[in-house]
Design a binder for these strands. Structure first.
Length: 362
DNA sequence: AAATCGGGGCA
DNA sequence: TGCCCAGATTT
């Protein structure tokens, strides 16, 4: 017995009419987006990964460049991770790139290079969760599987006046049951994309355009005049602040020292000018320790500036310390000494690019 | 269930 | 500023 037994779908809700109105509107008004050119499952897959928590306009140039560089699963499978991260540079959530890369290699190894059209096999691939699974199955394979994202929860919470907290994991499952029971079996692709397109263009978080909404007559929230109160969502906690020193070292030949971040955690496997927490040492103690640890001498230049960077869950406040290496050397295993031109060839997170821009070395 | 994981758009 | 975005994974 499914959970849908306990979902309150209003008696007057006309499922078929809702499907028809939504799908008709979608096919009339859908945006001309690069991943809508065809149904190539690999293409759909890449687009869905890039679109996770990322707006359409941001994704478009990255998608074009990525598909141009890696037209097939084989092209992506053969690339190395640093190259893939460079293609992802600036897009954020870099585990998406690492997982996609790994999953594509798995498709080449185990599925003869063909993206599986099977629910369980898709879900096994790194980076494919319930939403992406449903999106690929419905859009690339025309299978009636729900694809519930933030748009869909917002739209359906209003249409069916569902007042569960969409910040809670359990609520997503509720909506997946709802959509499974309400969606079109004939055109699941247009239905799912229609819900998301409606969320992006009409049924927006603030000031929903109910006057021109194609499913207005099906919407319980509009009927009650409470569309602005839905969906219900509890607030996220405020970010904690962390203070760092960024040590920008220049050797006598004019090279810069950069290092690769750890392979797990925030900004994994990207590059940086070395960061040191200010919670442990002040600038004087840090430099003292550093010179002793590596047996080098540093000549710190004044007026180095600061960089502030906001992530989802933490805020970095960085004091930049520019220093000339006047004697000794840093072991190559700790990082790379590179010239200014080669800064372009390594994948850096935006916080580091911001720092470079401030120093006029980008 | 809660925390982690980027970056940008918008009122 | 705070909230949201075609979420997944780890703890």
């Amino acid at each position: 017995m499914s959970n849908s037994m306990f979902i309150s779908i209003p008696v007057l809700f006309n499922r078929e009419a809702f499907q028809n109105d939504l799908i008709y509107w979608y096919n009339e008004r859908k945006r001309d987006l690069p991943w809508r050119e065809n149904q190539d499952p690999y293409r759909i897959w890449v687009s869905e990964i890039m679109l996770q928590q990322t707006q359409v306009d941001t994704v478009i140039p990255y998608f074009e460049q990525f598909m141009n560089r890696y037209p097939t699963v084989y092209d992506l499978a053969e690339a190395n991770q640093q190259e893939v991260l460079k293609s992802w540079e600036g897009l954020g959530y870099y585990s998406r790139a690492r997982n996609l890369h790994e999953a594509v290699r798995e498709v080449v190894e185990s599925y003869d290079g063909k993206v599986p059209g099977d629910k369980k096999e898709l879900k096994k691939l790194k980076g494919i969760g319930s939403y992406t699974q449903g999106a690929i199955l419905s859009i690339a394979f025309d299978q009636p599987e729900p694809a519930v994202d933030g748009n869909v929860m917002r739209v359906m919470s209003r249409v069916l006046q569902i007042e569960e907290d969409i910040a809670k994991p359990k609520t997503k499952k509720l909506f997946e049951d709802v959509v499974a029971n309400v969606m079109s079996e004939e055109d699941p692709s247009s239905f799912n994309q229609g819900l998301m397109e409606l969320g992006a263009l009409i049924c927006k978080p603030k000031n929903p355009q109910c006057q021109i909404c194609p499913v207005q007559k099906h919407c319980a929230a509009f009927g009650q005049g409470i569309q602005a109160e839905l969906p219900i969502k509890t607030k996220a906690k405020k970010q904690k602040k962390e203070a760092y020193f960024a040590l920008v070292m220049i050797d006598p030949a004019g090279h810069y020292f950069i290092q690769k971040r750890p392979e797990e955690g925030l900004l994994a496997n990207l590059w940086e000018f070395p960061l040191f927490s200010q919670a442990e040492f002040d600038q004087y103690a840090l430099l003292n320790w550093f010179e002793f640890e590596y047996n080098v001498k540093l000549n710190v230049k004044s007026n180095n500036g600061q960089v502030k960077h906001i992530f989802s869950h933490v805020i970095w406040e960085i004091d930049i310390v520019v220093a000339e290496l006047t004697s000794g050397e840093i072991p190559n295993i700790k990082g790379h000494w590179i010239n200014q031109e080669d800064l372009k060839t390594y994948p850096f997170p935006n916080v580091q690019k911001k720092l470079m821009k401030q120093l006029l070395i980008n």
